[in-house]
Design a protein around this nucleic acid. Structure first.
Lengths: 201, 201
DNA sequence: CAACATTAGATAGCTATACTATCCAACGCA
DNA sequence: TGCGTTGGATAGTATAGCTATCTAATGTTG
């Protein structure tokens, strides 16, 4: 398809498509002549992933680029790839330190694995710090509530990976980490709303 | 305390504190003389909330302002306030439409309340659209998995509100909606990590 | 009490992000 | 043949979120 068609079908302006190509986030179309290039369904799919990550997830382009790189050339074992995907998502933390006291205590309490090199540890620490700074409850009881729910969800999310090829699994893990989160959060907000509006049920 | 002390204790540069005051996000200190103003613990707490929402939650200042306004002058019933708090969080959706087919189906399936005026409905619709655009599974089975977990979490979160004054409840609901989410997400990521690293448990 | 630092408040400047717009020569199409 | 479209390059724009500078007044310290 032509660039104008790619633009129409994806909803992304031509100028922006060109911009993404310049930035190396989208491969060039296959040059057919000096003024024509051919784009295919892969281009369209890629563009839709970019749109999902920027518009819905609200990620900065630099992070979107990181995520695309993980999908394109999965290097390292799954745990390492997951770690990098997590690092591309908010809350953005600086370089890893070697001690995260709040996260460490929480993780120990929940029986999870404390690995200070895994970005989510720093993210949890940050999140707990923010909670306390704002004067909200971050007691073990509250943590357990979230921990149990998330452990259950996570187990079910990992199940389908069993039957996948490596590249499929990487795409699923990377995009899934980023894109199931908004769904989950929207459902939590809807559950609050539902319970307030219709407490009987 | 002096502005320099406020700055030190909050970790926010003096120039930035002045900027927040200019922007109306932080009240002026009480003027003691032409070159001195006195800041108190409320200023410090407010600054910490701003920092939590911008740094950890990554919200744009305009949204932080919206949230602070809700806490400062809670207008309307709790459901309406919750709705406005949710509207200040990503995914940011434009004005409400009157039909959200994907969200409507999901909500019906989960037995929640479909109210197209509640922002989370539009957010869910967006999130589901993004999921499909990226080629991920958004089947009823997947939705139920998240829906059940979130309904359970939400019920436990609402419980403590029973014994609160209105202003306390509003602060809890508004800040809680924004600040428990990162904790939950970090725990989900940690659960994935844990299951990958140590599948036996 | 002199000298130096600090402050409030105002204004201007800066940096990064994410696009948009313009331009040109080379096509494609009617 | 002429008008619109394209690829590719370059330049410009809009916004957000600070950061720096300036002035006059005021603390503060040796």
């Amino acid at each position: 398809m032509k660039i104008s068609e790619l633009s129409e079908r994806s909803g992304v302006p031509v100028a922006t498509v060109k911009f993404y190509i310049r930035e190396g986030m989208l491969p060039r179309g296959e040059a057919v002549s000096a003024t024509r290039a051919e784009y295919d369904d892969d281009h369209l799919a890629r563009l839709r992933v970019i749109a999902a990550l920027t518009d819905v997830r609200g990620l900065p382009l630099a992070r979107v680029r990181d995520i695309l790189a993980l999908i394109d050339a999965p290097a390292g074992d799954p745990v390492e790839i997951l770690g990098r995907a997590v690092g591309a998502l908010p809350p953005y933390v600086g370089g890893t330190r070697d001690n995260y006291p709040l996260a460490r205590a929480a993780i120990a309490h929940l029986g999870l694995t404390y690995d200070p090199g895994f970005t989510a540890v720093a993210q949890l620490d940050e999140a707990l710090r923010a909670l306390e700074a704002a004067g909200l409850d971050a007691s073990p009881a509250v943590l357990r509530r979230y921990g149990e729910a998330m452990r259950q969800v996570a187990a079910e999310e990992l199940a389908p990976m069993a039957g996948m090829r490596l590249d499929e699994a990487v795409t699923y893990a990377v995009l899934g980490t980023a894109l199931y989160e908004p769904v989950m959060l929207a459902l939590r907000r809807l559950a609050h709303h539902h319970l307030l509006v219709d407490p009987a049920v």
